[in-house]
Design a binder for these strands. Structure first.
Length: 938
RNA sequence: GGGCGGUUAGCUCAGUUGGUAGAGCGUCGGCUUUACACGCCGAAUGUCGGGGGUUCGAGCCCCUCACCGCCCACCA
């Protein structure tokens, strides 16, 4: 350890050994304490890698966890990973495609083996990365959503909800992803405006007497039209309602119906109705008891024959020219056919919202299928109340509005996915399609035997559950549910959920619903909603944009070439590579230096303000790396002080600077504790930075130096007090900082603590500092602030007058009161040392001062004689500027005081304050004017 | 169409009950002061998006406009 501190701060040397030791010591397992504190890690994708969003979020959770652990609570940060159904399956499928294998050839069992294999190969990566971040999760409790325990819990929940009628199977129009060939939920569909066309198509009346023109963006769905709707009050079409049209191409008669849904202003005021391929049309179809005609196969090609639901005597024929065509080819073909018949009236450019799958980017198709649904109404109601009644609190508060908005309009949740990777739905079908939902096959078999009166062959539903279904159960399944475990009793409800606003609907709302239903209580008391990490320009970080930063690269550093390679490898659009390379070379000409984990973590804390977007700037990390270095070197200074035998005996004397820095420490402790309690991480980081750098390093260490100098006139008891304070304040400060910067604080603390007779296996289990008001010494604070102000005044003259820092200056003091005199005497040693003085002389009020630069502190005049060192012109300019500033302040203050209404209505204290200010300004101006006059005479 | 954010120093952002505008980075000047040049000392910088209102007093409260961004929504 001695060696480590001999050379500059080097994060890579201290971090890994430190973490390994923590883990070996089992520090992160809950240690029994008065109160429980628990955070659930939002489980990342098991095969994923850590990105900036994770690193940010994990840092915040770790800070909270470490603070509470140090406060003596029984603290659990529960880790785990998610099987991430679609994402993982897609990835493995893509790997197989590269080997020339289709998953369907492989079969379900063999495919799942491949996925499990992949999970075992790349599974530990993200958790290893979290360790690099210093995350103090209890890894011994790590869970995976497809663990047998969690899987059983998922089945249990499914069965119970089904038994209560809250899960049902139904044929509905769903969001269908034709490339993944699965249903997806509303939330997994991203609609974006794209350029398209609006085609106007003529539909002749069946009797040939007239025709209508309908406008559509999707002409290929014409094959499934079952009606044309007009607004009931639209005079243009009133006479036609009830008549029938001859559907082009299909040569089928369809009715003209009236429905409010139609906007007469849009297009022609006539809407073709295709209930099987449009959500609105589906509703219209329901209202008018229209059949549903499906024209697509699951991969969105035109079927050979229509699939007909609810219709009678409808021909299922589809022209051979169309069948088998992909939907986009079919669109062209349909248009061509219409054109040929002269029925394509007009084509307009049209912007429309195109729905795409968030994973596949494929255009989502409204598609009629059988799916499983959660009836959310009965679950949503108590979930809304929980937030209304304050049993769950969003921080910042305004997110509850977003939550309520969604919860009040929530629709049934489609939970089945036509995938293989996931929790297979615990439902079996009898020969006649009768459904048996059961905990396992045996249970289903016996139920079936009872139902049919004899054993039958059952077929299990091949579908799996939406990944978010198991995630919704995370806060209690990880603690052992459905068993009634001590962990559940101890840690549920958890304390806080830390999450981004992007998954309030996906996850937060669903956890609340499920938690209330199955645990009878909220899953967490608070939801801290943080912003989303973006790049320096405010762009979302994404592989395709090539602006991704890897948190591990910020910790370890990365060369420019490696970074370019990393960013341009495996792009979906390889043509972007050149552009990305250019931008990367420009932004990171030198690559990225190794900043270390502590610097990165501190940066995240400092960026965690209440805003929605967090623009990530490398410069901030660099500055905080410097902060680490500063802390490191300050510690080296403190540790250089050879321990004094007296020190531990309490025989020390504490001078004003000692008592002042103790007070500053109390102040910092107050601010930091309050900030963490309110999730104001940036405030805490700021207070810590300012305390260590400005108070401790810039002032206290400098004030300590004159005391500790070998030739100093301070007593050994005073020197002892200084050494003790240097170390005591540092030791406490390190504990205060530890949750944010766990590594450097641990290493330094292990060196510092023994110097003052403390010691422990780890700083992580020491007591978190709390402010002790009795440690604040008002007199010492006032004295020290006076001292600092006078030193600053002299330094300011030196700086502005370009006096070399080394040149000792004679200092003249004039005016002031008896307190100024006694302070000047008492703190002379520090004035001499820190302001580099040659001498201090007091001038009486009547004595004429020599030409000098003037600084004011209250009514104390601080004079630095010009003799040979100061340019008179420069000083005159400085005085004039100062006077100008004061005059402007004076004007503002005076006009305020001259207002009768201010005097009569403002609180007396405020008026008095203004009056005091005016007196001070007047006095200062008077001094400046006099001084200027004196200089003028030279 | 509905909702929610944002607009403060060159840049990124703080600013918690209304009472003389702050930080970091950057900029400028000066420094081998024995912890630290990843440093030290000093300095400059703002009609707090526009307009109106409430108030003795507004960056903060109310109204309005502009611009930027996000979320939700069934206009074919």
């Amino acid at each position: 350890m001695t060696d480590t501190l001999d050379h500059p701060f080097s994060p890579s040397e201290i971090e890994s050994p430190c973490y390994t030791r923590w883990e070996e010591l089992g520090l992160f397992q809950p240690q029994s304490g008065s109160e429980a504190y628990c955070i659930m890690l939002p489980p990342p994708n098991v095969t994923g890698t850590l990105h900036m969003g994770h690193a940010f979020q994990d840092t915040l959770m770790d800070i909270l966890t470490r603070v509470q652990r140090m406060r003596g609570k029984e603290t659990l940060w529960q880790p785990g990973t998610d099987h991430a159904g679609i994402a993982t399956q897609m990835l493995v499928e893509r790997q197989l495609v590269q080997e020339g294998i289709d998953r369907h050839q492989l079969g379900r069992t063999a495919f799942l083996e491949k996925v499990w294999q992949w999970r075992h190969e790349s599974g530990g990566h993200i958790t290893r990365q979290m360790r690099r971040l210093g995350a103090s999760c209890d890894w011994s409790r790590e869970r995976f959503t497809l663990d047998s325990g969690l899987s059983q819990a998922v089945t249990e929940v499914f069965v119970q909800l089904h038994d209560e009628g809250l899960i049902y199977r139904g044929k509905r129009l769903v969001n269908w992803d034709p490339t993944l060939r699965t249903a997806v939920s509303d939330l997994e569909v991203i609609s974006e405006e794209e350029q398209g066309s609006l085609w106007h198509i003529r539909y002749p009346l069946s009797d040939g007497s007239d025709s209508l023109v309908v406008a559509t963006t999707r002409p290929e769905t014409l094959l499934g039209d079952v009606a044309v709707a007009v607004h009931p009050n639209d005079p243009r079409y009133a006479a036609l309602i009830g008549k029938t049209l001859r559907l082009p191409i299909m040569e089928r008669d369809i009715p003209i119906i009236a429905d409010d849904y139609v906007d007469p202003e849009f297009g022609s005021g006539c809407v073709k109705i295709t209930p099987a391929h449009d959500f609105n049309d589906y509703q219209v179809g329901q209202r008018h008891h229209l059949p549903q005609l499906n024209v697509f196969t699951p991969d969105a090609r035109i079927r050979d024959k229509l699939e007909i639901f609810g219709g009678e005597n409808i021909s299922d024929q589809i022209p051979a020219a169309l069948s088998g065509l992909d939907r986009f080819a079919a669109r062209k073909k349909v248009l061509a056919l219409l054109e040929a018949q002269g029925l394509l009236v007009q084509t307009d450019d049209h912007k429309l919202m195109v729905p795409r799958g968030d994973r596949s980017q494929a255009v989502i198709e409204p598609f009629l299928t059988d799916q499983w649904y959660v009836k959310v109404g009965p679950l949503a109601e108590p979930a809304i109340r929980a937030v209304e009644e304050g049993r769950i609190r969003f921080v910042p508060e305004n997110w509850n509005k977003t939550y309520f908005d969604w919860m009040h309009r929530i629709e049934d949740w489609c939970i089945s996915r036509q995938l293989w990777w996931g929790h297979q739905i615990p439902a079996w079908y009898g020969p006649d399609g009768h459904i048996f939902v059961a905990r396992h096959e045996d249970e289903a078999q016996s139920a079936a035997a009872r139902h049919y009166g004899m054993p039958v062959v059952l077929e299990r539903d091949p579908d799996v559950l939406d990944t978010w279904f198991s995630s919704a159960l995370w806060p209690f399944t990880t603690l052992g549910w459905p068993e009634k475990t001590p962990d559940l009793a101890r840690f549920y409800p958890t304390s806080v959920l830390v999450t981004g606003f992007d998954i309030i609907f996906f996850w937060v709302a669903r956890m609340i619903m499920m938690g209330l239903r199955f645990m009878g209580d909220v899953p967490f008391h608070e939801v801290y909603v943080h912003g989303l990490v973006r790049d320096a320009e405010g762009q979302k970080m994404s592989k395709s944009k090539g602006n991704v930063l890897d948190p591990i690269d910020l910790i370890d550093g990365i060369s420019l070439e490696d970074l370019v390679a990393k960013r341009t490898r495996g792009l979906m659009q390889p043509q972007m590579a050149a552009k990305i390379e250019k931008a990367t070379r420009k932004e990171f000409a030198e690559g990225i230096p190794a900043f270390g984990t502590d610097a990165l973590r501190f940066t995240f804390a400092a960026l965690a303000t209440q805003g929605r977007d967090i623009k990530f700037d490398l410069k901030r990390v660099e500055g905080n790396r410097n902060f680490c270095n500063k802390l490191w070197n300050a510690s080296r200074f403190a540790l250089m002080q050879t321990p004094d035998p007296q020190m531990l005996e309490g025989a020390c004397e504490y001078l004003a600077p000692e008592r002042w820095i103790m007070g500053r420490l109390q102040h910092c402790e107050t601010v930091v504790n309050m900030a963490f309690d309110q999730y104001r991480f940036a405030d805490a980081a700021h207070a810590l930075y300012q305390f260590f750098w400005n108070d401790y390093c810039d002032w206290y260490i400098e004030l300590a130096k004159p005391i500790l100098r070998e030739d100093s006139s301070f007593t050994s008891a005073q020197q002892c007090g200084t050494r003790n304070t240097l170390l005591r304040v540092l030791e406490t400060g390190l504990r205060l900082l530890h949750p944010v910067m766990p590594f450097i604080t641990e290493v330094l603390w292990q060196r510092v603590a023994p110097m003052i007779g403390k010691g422990a296996d780890t700083i992580a289990l020491t007591r978190y500092p709390e402010a002790k008001p009795q440690e604040i010494d008002v007199v010492a604070n006032a004295d020290s602030e006076w001292l600092i102000a006078v030193i600053r005044a002299v330094r300011s003259v030196r700086g502005e007058m370009d006096i070399p820092p080394k040149k000792p200056l004679p200092l003249l003091l004039q005016g002031g009161g008896s307190q100024d005199r006694s302070r000047a005497e008492q703190y002379a040693s520090w004035l001499f040392a820190l302001a580099r003085l040659a001498s201090i002389h007091w001038l009486s009020e009547t004595e004429e001062a020599p030409p000098a630069a003037l600084q004011l502190h209250g009514d104390l005049r601080i004079l630095v004689p010009l003799a040979g060192v100061i340019d008179v012109r420069a000083e005159q300019g400085r005085l004039a500027k100062e006077q100008q500033r004061l005059e402007s302040d004076r004007g503002k203050t005076l006009s305020k005081l001259n207002q009768e209404s201010f005097r009569s209505r403002a609180p007396a204290a405020v008026v008095a304050k203004e009056e005091e200010r005016l007196r001070e300004i007047d006095a200062a101006i008077e001094q400046l004017v006099e001084q200027a006059a004196r200089l003028e005479q030279l």
